[in-house]
């Protein structure tokens, strides 16, 4: 690779440094935008882990996100501090993953997908019956609210989630997941315990989704449970990952960036229609650009590299490729 290890770390360090100092020079609304970006990145990585790396399509992400948001609110009201509330959000997501994952991940992927869909539907109905309208945080929280604290919570959580994804991708766990995704039967036969790996990945994924929900409550203070559990919160992260590049580390980041920017610019003008457009773009991406933006970028990088390196390319072998010493019968 042209970029040496050292150069990469330097680049990451610079970006992190710039982001870490963010609230010092950013306008408040931009800080808010970044918080939304962080939430999307974490949620998208959650879907990416079980969907992009393990190949299991989670259609009920909203239930995990919503549960995290709800639980954080309830725990907060109950008097716990924000750290506990966030942790509880993550645990909720994890528990939910266990509930859905254990029965369905032993079977073919369609059962998992429909199982998650069923959970999401059930949750949405349950929640809209139990909690109608908005749930507000008590005013003491509003008084102590700073955008900066939320920003740093979001930034740190995002860094942790990205680091986790990076470590997983390079570990035996990650290799096993990808093997499961590409050909589960073949992986099984070579001794990979695919069910265990899928469940573990799903637990981590659920935890991350819960955290994203917790940060959401933490930032917005007022939540509307019905909205938190709507299919939108499944579709948008799904779309982010597929457009950004499924199964890559940076894909969800690129996708989230684009989404947040586009939503920020167009949400007033398009309204509900923007979902229709997103849907169409999403379908086109899955059918014709399966690698997403991440793949496009790496291809572009290869082209540039080829451009600048010397022409030492391999020549095509001549047609008579018989190995030396063989005689024709």
């Amino acid at each position: 690779m042209r970029c040496s290890r050292g150069k990469k770390f330097l680049l990451i360090g610079i970006v992190v440094g710039i982001l870490a100092l963010g609230p010092l020079y950013m306008r408040t609304d931009i800080v808010g935008l970044f918080i939304v970006l962080f939430i999307h990145i974490i949620l998208a990585q959650s879907w990416n882990l079980i969907g992009g790396y393990a190949g299991q399509i989670n259609l009920g992400l909203a239930a995990f996100f919503g549960s995290g948001a709800l639980v954080t609110h309830l725990i907060w009201i109950g008097g716990a501090n924000s750290f506990m509330a966030l942790l509880a959000a993550g645990m909720t997501g994890l528990v939910l993953s266990a509930v859905v994952g254990f029965p369905t991940l032993r079977l073919r992927g369609i059962y998992f997908s429909m199982g998650t869909l069923a959970i999401a539907m059930t949750a949405e109905i349950l929640v809209s019956n139990l909690f109608s309208g908005a749930l507000r945080a008590p005013s003491i929280f509003a008084a102590g609210f700073t955008a900066e604290s939320r920003y740093y919570v979001g930034l740190i959580s995002t860094m942790i989630s990205l680091l986790t994804m990076y470590l997983i991708a390079r570990s035996r766990f990650g290799v096993g997941l990808r093997a499961t995704r590409d050909d589960e039967d073949a992986a099984r036969v070579t001794g990979v315990n695919t069910t265990k790996l899928k469940i573990e990945a799903f637990l981590i994924s659920g935890f991350m989704a819960g955290i994203a929900g917790g940060i959401f409550t933490y930032y917005y203070l007022t939540i509307w449970p019905e909205f938190q559990f709507s299919t939108l919160w499944t579709f948008v992260p799904l779309m982010i990952v597929c457009i950004g590049g499924m199964g890559t580390l940076m894909g969800p980041v690129y996708g989230s960036l684009i989404l947040v920017i586009i939503e920020h610019i167009f949400s007033r003008t398009l309204g509900a229609a923007h979902l229709i457009i997103f849907g169409i773009v999403f379908i086109i991406a899955v059918l014709y650009f399966p690698g997403g933006i991440a793949d496009g970028l790496s291809k572009a990088q290869k082209i540039l590299e080829g451009f600048f390196s010397s022409k030492k390319g391999l020549t095509k072998p001549t047609h008579d490729t018989r190995m030396a010493g063989e005689t024709r019968i």
Binding site: G55, I57, L59, G109, I110, S113, R181, D182, D183, E184, T231, F235, L238, M239, C242, L275, I276, F278, G279, I280, F282, I283, V286, L287, P290
Partner: peptide
């Protein structure tokens, strides 16, 4: 293997549309 997953994704997108 990809076919089933992608059919899920695409039809999910279709639902949205």
């Amino acid at each position: 293997d990809l076919k089933v997953n992608n059919s899920l994704l695409i039809t999910f997108g279709l639902i949205m549309v």
